[in-house]
Design a protein around this nucleic acid. Structure first.
Lengths: 138, 138
DNA sequence: ACCGTAGTTTGAGATTCTTCGTAGTTTGAG
DNA sequence: CTCAAACTACGAAGAATCTCAAACTACGGT
């Protein structure tokens, strides 16, 4: 899985020169998401197998709206939070868009439902049941 | 892992004196499985996020019967196969029992269904759809 | 222009995972 | 008892993950 290959251009954005007109510089920052047909079940399951990420997805589903990263009060540092959101985005579970300084996060329900009908809901349901059972949250 | 000693709960196989009349001693070797209420959604998802293990579970579901480890023709070594079956057992997805020199593997459908209704089926369905779509199997 | 908020990147440490080969154990058969 | 078959256990190597702190970039207001 690992694919730390940076998003936009070829990492040469080291600012040695050309600070302004970089490829990704057009509208601002670019975030690349997998297209619908690039989403893989193994990757989705892996992304959701982390407690922190599963929790984010549960909150996102409960809110049923786009939320900024900072709305989530996770017990980890900012950089770790960024990391988890990145995994969720690269797996195709969430969609991220910049709006000002904030980054909005939304579930890709349509894509997931089209590829894997019922999967997301049954995982969310399973997670909710487990929290009810043993309340291991937060 | 660095610690092959079984994970959660411990207790049981304390073997202070390991009398012959131990529950597990009946047929010979003992394999400890998590009890139903020890099964965790994160662990289940993690176990199924590996292509090899997902494949094993798919075959097991398709066969709808107990199969020996050697029935699976995985493209990995035997010790790796043992490892994957162990992960599946410790996550609570499969149940393993010795029968002669063979080890029978069966899905714990009842337990999973009781804890997470519909989860296993929707994951299997998702996996099947993906194989149909891009045939990345074997 | 300056500052604060929001998030990213880089580099690091610690842990865990996947995989393997080799050596052992257990069981059933001859 | 000895053998083959079926697994397990024990390292070990290499990759991937999770986590953090520190330094950085982007955007919006005052």
């Amino acid at each position: 899985m690992g694919d730390r290959t940076k998003p936009g251009s070829g990492a040469i954005v080291t600012s040695a020169s050309a600070p302004a007109t970089s490829a990704a510089a057009v509208g601002g920052r670019s975030l690349d998401h997998p297209t619908r047909d690039e989403i893989r079940i193994e990757t989705v399951l892996h992304a959701l197998s982390d407690p922190m990420r599963l929790r984010v997805v549960r909150e996102l589903a409960a809110a049923d709206a786009e939320l900024t990263c900072s709305r989530f009060d996770l017990p980890v540092s900012k950089s770790t939070t960024t990391h988890h959101f990145r995994v969720l985005r690269e797996s195709g579970i969430v969609q991220q868009v910049y709006r000002g300084t904030a980054k909005m996060n939304g579930l890709r329900r349509d894509d997931l439902e089209a590829l894997f009908p019922g999967l997301l809901d049954s995982i969310l349901d399973a997670a909710n049941r487990q929290v009810q059972r043993i309340g291991e949250d937060r």
